[in-house]
């Protein structure tokens, strides 16, 4: 049991595990869909971020969560031509926060999943912009409308996607 205050029940803080194919295949598929399938809607939807959040929250362990986020982000950087580390740092932070949050909050509820995803999208976007502007020297502008829309859409998508990915959890 955690010594700190937790808002989750005993069952809710259960650490879920995933098979190796799922642990590798789902992030790769998410990056693949995000990068190579040129669906206009996917420019708003951030599937790698959703997968990062899901695995981080489900595992409820910060180190694997941040590592997962770092790998997914770096892979996304490699594919998308960004400087490697740009998405990596952002998703590392999100993975760490997600896994940390999953220990304290009930993240299996659709509402909480929506709000959690909504917040993580904003954080991811904020970190990304900060790194891009401060470290890489990028010139992207923060657009609130687009950012909030993206957060909203990703929150809704997370509710559906997480419900599907729950079926891939390994049960004892």
């Amino acid at each position: 049991m955690h010594s700190s205050v937790s808002l989750t029940s005993r069952e809710e803080i259960e650490v879920h595990r995933f098979s190796w194919p799922v642990s590798i295949g789902i992030p790769v598929a998410a990056i693949f869909l995000q990068v190579f399938l040129r669906i206009r809607f996917l420019t708003v939807l951030d599937l790698p971020l959703l997968v990062t959040i899901f695995f981080a929250v489900a595992r409820r362990r910060p180190v694997p969560g941040m590592i997962t986020g770092a790998l997914i982000g770096s892979l996304q950087d490699a594919w998308t031509g960004h400087p490697i580390g740009l998405f990596g740092i952002a998703k590392t932070i999100v993975g760490y926060l997600g896994s940390s949050l999953g220990v304290k909050v009930d993240v299996d509820n659709p509402g909480s999943r929506f709000l959690m995803t909504f917040a993580f999208v904003l954080i991811h976007r904020f970190v990304y912009m900060a790194i891009s502007l401060q470290l890489v020297g990028g010139s992207e502008a923060w657009i609130w409308g687009h950012t909030l829309l993206s957060a909203f859409v990703n929150g809704l998508a997370a509710v559906v996607l997480f419900a599907l990915l729950d079926k891939l959890k390994l049960r004892n």
Partner: peptide, 15 residues
């Protein structure tokens, strides 16, 4: 600490 390490590595790579 792991978080900082991972971030540090990525920042170094980025730099």
């Amino acid at each position: 600490l792991v978080l900082m390490l991972v971030l540090f590595i990525q920042v170094i790579a980025l730099a």
